[in-house]
Design a protein around this nucleic acid. Structure first.
Length: 579
RNA sequence: GCCCUUGUAGCUCAGUGGAUAGAGCACCGGACUUCUAAUCCGUUGGUCGUAGGUUCGACUCCUACCAAGGGCGCCA
């Protein structure tokens, strides 16, 4: 356990228990980072109230009892009864060592590793991926990496929209266009025009509508020729998705696709099982479940529609099938849904019904990792100048182009190959980081200049800090791995700030995981970069006063770089060695 | 109409019931013969939407209201 704050927390909690006895139960004895010392403890005020004593007295007693000699150089009561703790430098050095030689840089493994199924990305077949898919894909990818990093088994599921009524019209349009021509159109990535043409025909031509409807029936009844045409559409789209995922550098693969169609066989079972449980009600000709606590406009109970009046299933049925499949086939303990905020009520209803049916029993749980929209400068949904949705591949291309211009300007000596690679890493990193670094629940404003800026809470700033460290080792021709056993000595304040920050990686990552909020790790990494930049200005490494100091700083630099690289890594962002 | 989310500096955003609410941008002023100045250091800037309540203590929890966005029966 590397984080000094977590470490001292155990001793403080023990001291509180000793002082307060039964009164200390339920009192928040948490140790927190402080701007007045290294850490502060506020629990004395609450405990004093419970015991009818003065907070200052309680704090004093806690300090008398607490065993802090080996880790704190200073511990005192301040203000009304706060305890301020200052760690001694030997303790910090020891913790840095343990972090440096640990394969996970001091990050604790999950106490109970579990099976996590993450549902994310979810583009639609025969439709372009746009900025709306960016958030789900990028946030989902970061969660996959973080949860895997701490020892969980993670299953990626890409719930692609590959089924339903639109496929009637898409298949008929495919027939009209001719398969070869359609395949060409789809393979150049111009999926939207294919979809729009189909839609246009559907809206304008009644005979076409009739054909489309008949085709849906054929598709659902498993007609071989129809399925063949459908698979053609799916295959072209899958190739396109994979191209985007590779460009974006996310972990999703073809084999992660579990489209809506995958659950077809389970749908009748959902109805059957709900029927047996006597949960189904017929309402306006549809078979529905009334989950408690949900009402419609007229304040009447709001149903979850399992089977439509026409006998077809809809997305609620398929989402329930998903729950069953993930729990019973994949043995999922935790089901994450990285899905936009508008789906909140739907997912709540699905969860409520799944629980009521006994398919989702505690401690298994379903969590909606909800997120807001990407906005343009006008505060409305991000659109192109002509008012169209922004295509994801165009957005990524522009990001890399903009980064390339910046790289050429700032570091013209780099080889063309290096420039190309760095531009790719910086451009994609900027886009991903902009998405990850604000609280996912909120909408965020998309702004090229800000995300590619080298100042502030941006990917390039963090990547630059990492590149500078690499540069130190490259200049001096020192092997990074060779300094990892060096014993650090903490002397300079900037050195100390950096050390403290490095040691907080564990708690920052866990805090991020507990809340499924990548922006918390971003904030930490930004602070780390800022602490490093400050250190870099004030503390010469290669020209340190003594060899001991030099070795110590080399060790601290290497550890900082590894935390940065690993931290960015679990966010799905690369850290180049040169910029 | 009911429900959900959001509201913090001019702008973009952090903020775990705790002490004096923090960054970045912008503005203004400094620091390159130096391990990458793509950086650093400093100044200026606040009714935490409004009003109550709970609490030793509230940006944080509760209630009401205001504003913005979203959801509310057979699309997904």
């Amino acid at each position: 356990m590397a984080d000094p704050i977590v470490y001292v927390g155990q001793r403080i909690a023990a001291a509180f228990a000793k002082v307060g006895g039964a009164a200390a139960v339920g009192v928040d004895t948490a140790v927190r980072a402080s701007d007045r010392a290294d850490a502060q403890v506020n629990g004395s005020l609450a405990l004093a109230k419970a015991m009818g004593l003065k907070p200052h007295e309680v704090a004093t007693k806690v300090l008398e009892v607490a065993d802090l000699k080996d880790i704190c150089s200073d511990a005192q009561v301040a203000g009304p009864g706060f305890i301020n703790l200052t760690f001694n430098n030997q303790f910090l050095a020891r913790e840095l060592m343990s972090s440096s030689v640990s394969d996970k840089l001091g990050v604790r493994n999950a106490t109970k590793p579990c099976n996590v199924v993450i549902d994310y990305s979810a583009p639609n077949v025969a439709k372009e991926m746009h900025v709306g898919h960016l958030r789900s894909t990028v946030i989902g990818d970061a969660l996959v990496r973080m949860l895997t990093f701490v020892g969980n088994t993670v299953v990626r599921e890409n719930h692609v929209g590959d089924w339903g009524t639109p496929f009637g019209m898409l298949i008929e349009h495919l027939v009209d266009s001719g398969e070869t021509h359609a395949a060409n159109e789809l393979s150049v990535g111009d999926l939207d025009s294919f979809y729009r043409s189909a839609r246009k025909k559907f809206d304008e031509s009644e005979p076409f509508q009739a054909r489309a409807r008949a085709r849906v029936v054929l598709l659902q009844s498993g007609d071989a020729e129809t399925l063949r045409l459908w698979k053609l559409l799916v295959a072209e789209s899958t190739r396109y998705f994979q191209m985007i995922y590779r460009t974006l550098g996310v972990l999703l693969e073809d084999t992660d696709i579990m489209g809506e169609s995958s659950y077809n066989k389970l749908l009748p079972q959902v109805v059957e099982r709900l029927g047996k449980l006597k949960m189904l009600t017929t309402s306006d000709g549809a078979e529905v479940v009334f989950a408690e606590g949900f009402v419609n406009r007229e304040n009447q109970p709001l149903p979850l529609i399992i089977r439509k009046t026409d006998g077809g299933y809809n997305y609620a049925t398929s989402d329930l099938a998903c729950v069953i499949d993930r729990v019973e086939r994949l043995n999922a303990d935790l089901l994450l849904y990285v899905v936009g905020a508008p789906q909140a009520q739907h997912l709540q209803m699905v969860a409520a019904v799944a629980k009521q049916a006994g398919w989702l029993q505690a401690p298994r749980e379903m969590v909606h990792v909800s997120f807001g929209n990407v906005l343009g400068a006008d505060k409305k949904m991000l659109k192109t100048r002509s008012g169209d949705t922004v295509k994801l591949d165009a957005l990524l291309t522009e990001a890399v182009e903009r980064a390339a211009a910046a790289v050429s300007e700032k570091n013209p000596e780099l080889s063309d190959a290096a420039k190309t690679n760095i531009a790719r890493i910086v451009g994609l990193g900027a886009v991903k980081y902009a998405d990850l670094s604000t609280d996912r629940i909120k909408d965020y404003t998309f702004d090229w200049d800000r995300m590619l800026s080298f100042d502030g809470n941006t990917a390039p700033y963090l990547q630059y800090a990492h590149a500078r460290i690499c540069s130190i080792f490259r200049r001096a021709n020192i092997d990074r791995a060779s300094v990892r056993n060096f014993s650090p000595t903490i002397a300079h304040p900037a050195e100390r700030n950096l050390a403290m920050r490095v040691l907080q990686f564990d708690s920052a990552l866990w805090d991020t995981i507990d809340k499924y909020s990548p922006h918390r790790l971003c904030t930490y990494l930004y602070d780390l970069a800022a602490n490093f930049s400050s250190f870099y200005e004030q503390c010469p490494v290669l020209k340190a006063e003594t060899e001991t100091e030099r070795d110590s700083r080399l060790m601290l630099c290497d550890l900082t770089a590894r935390v940065m690289q690993t931290g960015l890594g679990v966010l799905g962002i690369e850290a180049p060695e040169q910029m």
